[in-house]
Computed example of a mutant assay.
Amino acid sequence: MADIRKRIGKNGTTYQVRYPCPSAKSGYAFKTFRTMKEARAFRENAHAWKESRPVYGAIKTVQDGLQKWLDICEKEGRGGRDPVTHYTLKGYRYRAEIIASYDWPDFLPNLRAPDVVEFRSWLLRNYSRDQARKVLSYFHSMVIEMVNRGVLDHNIASGVRVATTSRYDKPIRIPTVEEVRALLSAADRLANSKNAQIARSWARYRPMLYLAADSGMRPQEYVVLPRFNLSDRGVMVDRALDAGGAKISVTKTPAGRRFIDLSPETLDMVRHYGEKIAWPNDHDLVFPTSTGKWQSTKNWRRRGFQVACLEAGLIDSDADASDGSEDRPKFKPYDLRHFYASMLIDRKVNLKRIQKLMGHADIQTTLNVYGHIIDKDEDIDNNIGIISILHEN
């Protein structure tokens, strides 16, 4: 027989109906209401509670829901998407542990929006604002999955968020045409150095630098570029280093898979290195190390890109450094990606085309990053490589 229990907690007074449920482990299921009137109406409607299905299979607690969500992410992919990578899954599990560590007041199907608001308050008191925002976002994903699977009747987390400004609100630093010309000239000089060791290193770093400026590829994409992805017109991007740098994987999102036209000069330089100079390797890499493995993005940044910045005089002086003065590279490898996008915008390339070439899954990302410099006029010719433009006039 069903009965009603009055509950007084941090969320105020609620009324919990306990009713027989053969599928539940204890033989009973529970449903919580804000008023006694609602609880009585449910208790007296025998058909309602006999047909009520409080949980899906074995999913009763928030921890159960999290485990189901993680299994879906790992084995089948959410919403028909591909399963996440091993490194991404590690991040999911870390934040799932934070969610599970909270003292949830009831079973997952019985939770209401005020319970999620209290969870948000707990996050903000115990974690950084950025971490709280990310954890709550993962909780949202789990809840939506549970709604789709019939565990929850509605999205109990709807509207409960941690407000934040976009990471793209901070102005990005875009090298000018003159600065990129200086960077490429520095690479040319280093590749022709009288020092054999420097020349040998820059035989590889020079085409990498040209490729980065000419394609807008992410560093984790071009360090594992295979020779078979080069064609007579440009480069196909379909793989990248996993975020941990431990293995070659697919691009971050399906949108990252794209074809990019290259300037003839860049294409010849990259193909020549990959076919005539590169060390033999099992991954068909264009830019392998002497051991046949891929380069780490950290080594490329420190031993290649930063050296070119210093050679080109692209430095920032830090007068507040502990030793009185310190020169630092003005740019990072990723800034060449911003340069590439700015050149597309300068040429008035269609916004949707820019999104595709940059490999952005959402056009909103393109707008967030580059909206302040986008001209809505469309382009006439989208197939001239960036490096060719640098060499005009």
Rank of each mutant, 00 (worst) to 15 (best):
L285R: 04
Q131N: 05
V235G: 02
G359D: 02
P207F: 00
Y138L: 15
E38F: 12
R133D: 12
R7A: 01
Q355D: 08
R161N: 07
N368E: 15
L367M: 13
C309H: 14
E145D: 11
Y222W: 06
E118P: 15
K332G: 10
A96Q: 00
T85P: 05
D103H: 11
Y87A: 12
D103G: 08
I99Q: 00
V286Y: 10
R93A: 09
D64I: 01
A308S: 05
V84F: 08
Q67R: 10
K68A: 04
R353T: 14
N110W: 12
Q197I: 13
R328C: 05
P105A: 13
R167E: 13
Y15K: 11
A46N: 15
S322R: 10
W202F: 00
Y56P: 03
Y340K: 11
G159S: 03
A213K: 02
R78I: 04
A163N: 13
L183K: 09
N126L: 08
D327E: 10
R218N: 03
V116I: 12
D242E: 03
K75H: 13
A157W: 14
I198E: 06
E44T: 15
Y87S: 14
R129Q: 02
R303Y: 14
N192K: 08
N393L: 15
Y127A: 00
C73M: 06
S231T: 12
L123M: 04
N192W: 02
